[in-house]
């Protein structure tokens, strides 16, 4: 099991990978350790989410930056 990510440290502009494989870019961080405001960059399971802004729950963030993921990691 990988170490939990401290989302308080993530700056706007950072991309994160979410459980389920979607990728989102942080647009604001209230730094409460629980939520991020982000815009979907990709969403394999639900492509209609791409471009939408949504609050992302900390436990749904599984990696920081798409480059951090190897093929088939998810």
């Amino acid at each position: 099991m990988s170490a939990p990510i401290n989302i308080r440290d993530l700056a706007p502009g950072t991309s994160v990978v979410l459980a389920g494989g979607a990728e989102a870019e942080i647009i604001d961080n209230p730094r409460d350790g629980i939520w991020l405001f982000a815009r979907y960059l990709s969403s394999p399971r639900d492509p209609t989410l791409v471009g939408q802004e949504e609050m992302i729950f900390a436990q749904d963030v599984v990696a920081v930056g798409a480059a951090a993921l190897g093929p088939g990691r998810l």
Partner: peptide
């Protein structure tokens, strides 16, 4: 000052 009020118990915001 804040953008959201987040409950630390279960995370409702």
């Amino acid at each position: 000052s804040t953008t959201v009020f987040t409950c630390p118990y279960h995370g409702w915001s």
